[in-house]
Design a protein around this nucleic acid. Sequence first.
DNA 1: TTCGTCATGACAACGATTGTCAAATCAACG
DNA 2: CGTTGATTTGACAATCGTTGTCATGACGAA
Lengths: 128, 128
Amino acid sequence: MVEAPRNTRQRRAVVAILEDLDGFASAQEIHDILKRRGESVGLSTVYRSLQVLADAAEVDALRNDDGEVLYRQCSAGHHHHLVCRSCGRTVEIEGPSVERWADKIADENGFRDVAHTLEIFGTCSSCA
Amino acid sequence: MVEAPRNTRQRRAVVAILEDLDGFASAQEIHDILKRRGESVGLSTVYRSLQVLADAAEVDALRNDDGEVLYRQCSAGHHHHLVCRSCGRTVEIEGPSVERWADKIADENGFRDVAHTLEIFGTCSSCA
DNA sequence: TTCGTCATGACAACGATTGTCAAATCAACG
DNA sequence: CGTTGATTTGACAATCGTTGTCATGACGAA
Ligand SMILES: [Zn+2]
Ligand SMILES: [Zn+2]
Ligand SMILES: [Zn+2]
Ligand SMILES: [Zn+2]
């Protein structure tokens, strides 16, 4: 039995930002937004909170081209993303046939413990 | 007209390693292999050589879960990878239907300048 | 061989992320 | 409520992959 995490102001603030945000954002961006709102939270704490949320699968994480990790509160269940490189706006996408295809490829080649990454990046219509 | 890069011992050595390697490897791994072989090449030079090769699309680059960039000499043309997390062994994969699906999703949502990442990670049969 | 470039490599700098640890805060308990 | 003790915080240092710097060296055209 794992201990439930404490309900702290900082953790609540990070979650609140994630609920407000539409798209993906980095830990540092979230830290900046918090500072701007006056609800300042230490950078380490932002990182830790996001890690905990990601481990609990309450937020999705992905890496942009620069290698930064971006976080977003998504709907439950396995899905992928169409992400605007410029503003972060995100559309969740599903592709059952892609899932089957990936599993089949891995199986045919004798791979176990398979996972896949699939993200589509582009420029959204507002940013074009 | 761009200048052709010079034909140096270091560049040749890096290319030779890539030709020998079966799977993806990081810049530091390649640097280590070179050192072990006695064909020592500066780490900066390894990084630069790989960048040049990647820009010229002569090698593929991808990021593992840890955020490290891995490089591999692949066949020409757009494709994806099935990569062993443990030993790096790689199978190139193609999925025309996935390509069409990704483009369609992006188009339907009004995204331009679209690119996608798709990699499958697992444990290969030798490493299981 | 000569010479102007380009490439190299030791090293410093960078940027995202993680570790440290004393101080602050939560929540259970009395 | 106040005590208490484990958890969390945050300023700061440390880490790690990667990139920048720049004096030195090597390539290759002439
Ligand atoms: Zn946008
Ligand atoms: Zn999937
Ligand atoms: Zn393997
Ligand atoms: Zn593709």
